[in-house]
Write a protein that binds this DNA or RNA. Structure first.
Length: 270
DNA sequence: AGGTCGACCTGGCAGC
DNA sequence: TGCTGCCAGGTCGACC
């Protein structure tokens, strides 16, 4: 499910309600989402811990405790962190009881997600190797111009590469390229300076706009209150094969790149 | 070394 | 109604 805007939405909401709370109990319904630790170990590590902060890195959620340790959560395709009443649906895999009497439910239909307990975030390869944050100082036009020089992969594939830039997934890669008027098939090193500029501007603009609309709910994504994101209404090409391009009226096309669907308008993007 | 592809899972949907 | 095949927002490791 969630790409940067969806994860950011969850993080901002959770921050308001779980910081300062203590985990009083943990119910593990399916431990396949828990990495490296047994059920007993996982509970022992987290029970009694008080949440100090909730932050995001790439598409990952970092819950820090006042004891200098962390719970790293990656929602992958279908993970959800829902705060409120205890849930008991078939997707519910782990439930944390909190000191205010509410619960933090981890739901995950496909079980791809990760719950990782650690005392050192650098031991998590995903965090250690993630590329620059799109809103960070390190990600800018000059960085893009330099990074594309040696890359032959289609620019769509490059946008999905988390080593290049953190947080973009399959929906926003198509949306960013449509707004930047760049063909998803264009080899990265062939981007002109102007195109690099448009790519930078639209990456930042699309992600920020989606955060304002609380993300995109294609299928499974829900925020921490179980609500859908409203950026769905602003999607221009993703999952719109055969429909009219909202800019020019031509038909939106779908192709497969590196095994993943790409949607684009051949008239608007070259 | 850079790039591609299957594996990890469950479930919804279209077509027969 | 069932069955089959395809598709789904991500990441990694094995391969070429």
């Amino acid at each position: 499910m969630p790409e940067l805007p969806e994860v950011e939405t969850v993080v901002r909401d959770l921050k308001k309600v779980i910081v300062g709370q203590t985990i009083t109990a943990i119910d593990i319904i399916d431990n396949r989402v828990i990495k490296d630790l047994s059920n007993t170990q996982f509970k022992r590590k987290l029970k009694g811990k008080t949440v100090q902060s909730v932050t995001r890195r790439a598409k990952g959620i970092i819950i820090a405790f006042d004891s200098d340790d962390y719970l790293f959560v990656h929602l992958k395709m279908t993970g959800q962190l829902i705060y409120g009443a205890k849930q008991n649906i078939k997707e519910t895999k782990v439930v944390f009881s909190l000191s205010d009497g509410n619960y933090l439910n981890y739901n995950d239909q496909r079980l791809f997600g990760w719950l990782i307990y650690t005392t050192d975030l650098d031991t998590i390869g995903y965090i250690k190797t993630a590329g620059p944050e799109p809103f960070g100082r390190d990600f800018n036009c000059a960085f893009i111009r330099e990074a594309i020089k040696t890359r032959k992969v289609p620019v769509k594939t490059l946008l999905l590469n988390q080593f290049f830039v953190a947080g973009i997934g399959n929906i926003y890669a198509s949306e960013i390229l449509h707004r930047a008027q760049i063909s998803p098939m264009k080899p990265s090193f062939r981007l002109s300076d102007i195109e690099c500029e448009r790519l930078y501007d639209q990456t930042v603009d699309v992600l920020k706009e989606s955060i304002r609309y609380r993300g995109t709910s294609m299928r499974n994504y829900r925020d921490s209150k179980g609500r859908r994101g409203r950026f769905m209404n602003r999607i221009r090409v993703y999952n719109r094969e055969g429909k009219d391009c909202l800019s020019c009226g031509d038909k939106v096309k779908r192709i497969v790149q590196s095994g993943r669907s790409t949607f684009y308008c051949a008239s608007c993007q070259d």
